[in-house]
Design a protein around this nucleic acid. Structure first.
Length: 371
DNA sequence: AATACCGGCGAGT
DNA sequence: TCATACTCGCCGGTATT
C-alpha cells in the first residue's frame, strides 16, 4: 500500500454533452440533429437559457448559457433542430446507474457533479499508467454497452492533471498524461484553460502579461500573492505547475438550493406564493437524504443581474418546511427594507451547514437530558 | 488572537 | 442581442469569544 503512495493515478470521467446525450438515448431518432437542452424561465415564450447542447448544435455556435432565443436564431436554417426542456430527474436516474458502474472500478471515487467523477486507481494499478489506461478503456466500453452513452476519460497523476487531460479530447476521448509529460502538456495552453481560471481571472492575468499556463508557472510568486492574495496567488502558481495534492474523496452534499425567475420584477416581498413550493421542495429533499440544515439563506438576482444574498444561522438545525419558509420570509422582508431601491428578477432559497439527521436526535436527547 | 459568520464573487456544468 | 438552475469554493470584512 505505502509502496505506491508516491505514484498516485487518478481518472477523470466526464459524460459527453450529458443532458443532450440522455435525450438522444431516450429518443434515438434525434441523433445527428442539433439538440439543445433549454431551461425556460416562463417570463415570455422562449425566454430562458441553454443548459447544454449536443456537438451538432455546438458546431453551429450554440453554447451553454446563451439565451434560447439566440440559439433559435443560430439554428434558424436547421428546422430539424430540437429544443427540449431540461428533464433533470431523468438525467439523474441515468447518472446514478453510471456512478454505480464507476464504483465497481474503484472504491475511491469522488462524484463532482451529475456527469463527472474522479477515481483514484493508485492501488488497482500499482502505479502503472498502462494498467490505468486499460481500466479507462473498460469503463468506456461498459458505459457504452450498458447505457449506450459515450464518455471521455483523462488519466493523470492527480485530479488537476486528469481533469486537464479529459478536457483535451472530447467527445469519446481517452487521454493519458504521464508525469514526465505534464510540463509539455500544460505550458503551451492558454491560461484560461487551466481549471479554476475563468474569464475574470484570465483578464487579470493577461494584464500582468501572463498568457499561457507556462507563463503562470514561471511567474514570481510574490507578485501573484500581491495581486490575488496570500492563498490564491501561490495556489494559481502551483496549479500551473501541475501540482495538486487534493485527495479523491467521497463528497457529502454541503448545500441545497432552489431558485425561480419571477414573472415580473418585484421591489418588495410580494412573491411569497412563489417561495412556498421552493421551501417545500428543499425540505422534502433534506428529509429524503436524512439531513438537517443549520443555516438558511435567500438569494436575490436583481434586474441588473447582480447576485445578492442574506443568510441566518439557526440555534438548532432543522428540516422543517415551515421553519425554512418563516426564516426565508424574515430574510426577504429585511432585505427589501434595507435595499429599497432593489428590483428582484430571480429569487431563491438556500440551506447549508448540512448534517445527518442522527446528530439532531443526539442533540435533542442531550438537550432533554440536561433540561 | 482565533474562530464563526456573513455577503460578494467566480467558476463549471 | 439576452442573460437558467444548481453546486462548490475563496476572499475580505465584521462579530463573537
Amino acid at each position: 500500500m505505502s509502496l505506491y503512495a508516491e505514484t498516485r493515478i487518478v481518472l477523470a470521467v466526464d459524460l459527453d454533452y450529458f443532458y443532450a446525450q440522455c435525450e438522444e438515448i431516450r429518443n434515438p431518432e434525434i441523433k445527428g440533429k442539433p439538440v439543445v437542452i433549454c431551461v425556460y424561465s416562463g417570463r415570455t415564450v422562449d425566454s430562458g437559457a441553454v443548459s447544454t447542447a449536443n456537438y451538432v448544435a455546438r458546431s453551429l455556435g450554440v453554447r451553454s448559457g446563451i439565451p434560447i432565443i439566440l440559439a433559435k436564431r443560430l439554428l434558424a436554417k436547421h428546422p430539424e433542430a430540437r429544443f427540449l426542456p431540461m428533464d433533470r430527474e431523468f438525467y439523474e436516474s441515468v447518472s446514478e446507474r453510471i456512478m454505480q458502474i464507476l464504483r465497481y472500478h474503484s472504491s475511491k471515487i469522488e462524484q463532482v457533479s451529475i456527469d463527472e467523477a474522479y477515481l483514484d486507481v493508485s492501488e488497482n494499478t500499482r502505479g502503472d499508467f498502462a494498467v490505468a489506461e486499460k481500466i479507462a478503456t473498460e469503463i468506456k466500453s461498459e458505459i457504452l454497452e450498458k447505457e449506450l452513452l459515450t464518455c471521455s476519460v483523462g488519466v493523470g497523476s492527480n485530479k488537476l492533471i486528469s481533469k486537464m487531460a479529459v478536457d483535451a479530447k472530447k467527445p469519446d476521448g481517452l487521454t493519458t498524461i504521464l508525469p514526465s509529460q505534464v510540463h509539455q502538456f500544460l505550458d503551451p495552453l492558454l491560461v484560461g484553460k487551466l481549471f479554476g481560471i475563468g474569464t475574470k481571472t484570465e483578464k487579470k492575468l493577461g494584464d500582468l502579461g501572463i498568457k499561457t499556463i507556462g507563463d503562470l508557472a514561471n511567474y514570481d510568486v510574490d507578485e501573484l500573492s500581491e495581486e490575488f492574495g496570500p492563498n490564491l496567488g501561490p495556489l494559481l502558481k502551483r496549479l500551473a505547475q501541475g501540482i495538486d495534492d487534493d485527495p479523491v474523496k467521497e463528497r457529502e452534499t454541503e448545500q441545497l438550493s432552489r431558485i425561480v425567475t419571477l414573472k415580473h420584477d418585484a421591489d418588495g416581498f410580494d412573491f411569497a406564493s412563489e417561495i412556498t413550493p421552493l421551501c417545500k421542495d428543499i425540505s422534502n429533499r433534506l428529509v429524503a437524504y436524512g439531513l438537517v440544515c443549520k443555516s438558511i439563506g435567500i438569494l436575490v438576482i436583481t434586474t441588473e443581474l447582480k447576485t445578492k444574498n442574506r443568510s441566518k444561522t439557526l440555534d438548532a438545525p432543522t428540516n422543517s418546511e415551515v421553519r425554512i419558509e418563516s426564516v426565508a420570509s424574515e430574510l426577504f422582508q429585511l432585505f427589501f427594507r434595507e435595499e429599497n431601491e432593489t428590483l428582484a428578477r430571480r429569487v431563491g432559497i438556500r440551506v447549508s451547514s448540512l448534517t445527518k439527521t442522527e446528530s439532531l436526535k443526539k442533540d435533542a436527547s442531550l438537550t432533554e437530558f440536561f433540561s
